[in-house]
Write a protein that binds this DNA or RNA. Structure first.
Lengths: 194, 194
DNA sequence: ACCTGAACACCGTTCAAGT
DNA sequence: ACCTGAACACCGTTCAAGT
């Protein structure tokens, strides 16, 4: 597994990249400090000079993955399309890193940075939700999309076996789900006093 | 931790109950074979005479928890209320077993038995969805509710700290979410050609 | 048949030691 | 400062041995 002998000292960036590659291959569940070390041709303990512990390494990986997603913004084709785009972008970006969605779902802010969270609140307030319900709406949408990613984390190649029986693939589930999320929020927005 | 000396031989039922109690206390993540053994005053290895392995024990615990939920049925107060009741029942039953929702979300049928799954398909077909979209609808609803339970698995007492900041508690999130799920499905049902 | 204790193959992590 | 190797405290699980 070592990719050759090292010349330059290890960097945190290098470690994160190796961990990301391993996550794409085997999923976050199977990521071990020893495997990251091996991938870099270094002992597992060497990592501890650049990273506090495994938990921090995972959060760095997750952050890097999330940074590739399209931020939530209000385009001129309606908030429904903006939300749909953002949720599908999160899904597309994270689907190739099995387990990251499941990791985020257990985090306080669901993986979005504080800025990402408040950006979501702004978005839904601009749309017409109260501050309180804007939060409920954004958390609802994130819960669904990360939930869907959690479902897929353990399936992967099973996508072709089990799911195909019904002629349905992951993409069908997500698209239906995102449509339902958007439609549900639109209805709640119209029905009640915000 | 041992609850006294054993007289009768261990039973599978007893093991499941001990595991359920430990799950309620500390969550599924912290459940170990050694802790279950200790709770029963028995070595960890004794369990293996009644249970294949830890995976099977977890699935038995999860099944027992799920059996306490209200099955999905079409009442005479509209399918929306039936669905809402079922989802809230799943949440109420499973919220006190942290980690079980997160476990289910990774299972092929999302934790429902084959019968539970086909009951869901029937439900949504009776309501007017095509066979294909009935499946999408039921999986969508289960994905959300298990996703919500996954969110809560790691919070628990944080419910009183972090979440309360906004004056929002778990119950508020779930009720909003279930409303949105129901509203979204209703809209999709009306809008498209099935 | 049922249970135990030692042991094995993994983890994450600590620590003394090397350069 | 950076890295290593042995070691520790956990896992799940196997296996020989006891009753």
């Amino acid at each position: 597994m070592p990719t050759g002998t090292r010349e330059a000292p290890l960097t945190r960036h290098e470690i994160i990249e190796a961990a990301m590659a391993l996550t794409q291959e085997h999923g976050l569940d199977r990521l071990t400090m020893r495997s990251v070390g091996a991938k870099l041709g270094v002992s597992a303990m060497a990592l501890y000079h650049h990273v506090d512990d495994k938990e921090q390494l995972i959060s760095l990986v997750a952050e890097a993955v999330f940074n590739g997603t399209e931020p939530l913004y209000l385009g001129d084709d309606g908030w429904e399309n903006g939300l749909r785009r953002t949720l599908l972008s999160i899904w597309e970006q994270m689907a190739s890193y099995p387990g990251v969605g499941a990791y985020f779902i257990g985090q306080p802010l669901m993986g979005s940075t504080p800025q990402g969270m408040s950006r979501g609140l702004e978005f839904f307030q601009q749309v017409g939700f109260s501050r309180r319900r804007a939060r409920l709406a954004w958390v609802f949408a994130l819960t669904y999309i990360h939930g869907r990613l959690s479902v897929e984390a353990r399936l992967r190649e099973a996508d072709d076996l089990f799911m195909r029986v019904q002629g349905l693939r992951s993409r069908d589930y997500v698209e239906f789900g995102v449509d339902a999320v958007v439609a549900g929020l639109r209805t709640l927005l119209m029905e009640s006093g915000n």
